[in-house]
Amino acid sequence: MKARPAVWLTWGALAFFMLNLAGIVGAVVTNSFAESWFGTWLPDGYTGKWYGEAWRDYRLLDVLVVTFQVAIAVVVISVLIGVPTAYALARRNFPGKKLLNVLFLLPILMPPMTYGIPLATVLYKFHLAGSMAGVIAANLVPAVPFVVLTMTPFIEQIDTKIEAAARMCGANTVAIFTRVLAPLLVPGILAASILVLVRTVGMFELTFLTAGPTSQTLVVSLYEAMSSAGIRPQQMVDSMAVIYTGSMLLLLVIALRFVNPTQLVTRLKEPA
């Protein structure tokens, strides 16, 4: 097969992009291990002390605990609300369904800032801002619609005849949910949970707008650390950024085990 220039151009551009990306990540990782690094190709010496200092100074354990609590709460609540909603929206046609569909799409389509600022205002009004509850509430706004969106194809692929068969066997609605639908939806719920987890840990704007000093998640305290970088060495911020990216990478690797990224749009195949 003769090499076509278009192919080489594509791979070439991709390689260039990747090379720059590697440089960007490499620069941060290198700096996080650097004794000091000013205006040279490589740092003068290497040390791991910045990680320890960042861990202590930024109280990363507390931050990670908060991040974890917020993320788990958001996942659990959004699945509990989102799955029944997705079911009703997938299975019934009723007056007002279109409106509800749009309402569940808007929080994903809107930049978080646009509803984040009014939401923060409302939360301040009810004295919820700054608390963990406020952060969780704010993060639920895009998370619930995201669960609805992710679950819909999973629900649609379950043959309605299976539910009809369960009804004919005498199962009531609760039994259909617990005995038939829930076991069949486990892969979908797992996928949605993991994706919501990744999104919540990475969600900056909403947490930033609603968090107080004790309810900051990792991504927000990272931003705060960088904004006030003058006080502490750059390397500490960088080592914290590496910790953040490391945990996100871990989550993503787990997520990719459960979700095939190319099947996010096309219908998901029947679970085996």
Binding site: G23, I24, V25, A27, V28, N31, G202, F204, V219, L222, Y223, M226, Q234, V237, D238, A241, V242, Y244, T245, M248, L249, L251, L252
Partner: peptide, 10 residues
């Protein structure tokens, strides 16, 4: 996974 801060630092 990089997040805005690591990207910015980088």
């Amino acid at each position: 996974t990089l997040g805005t801060v690591l990207t910015a630092e980088g």
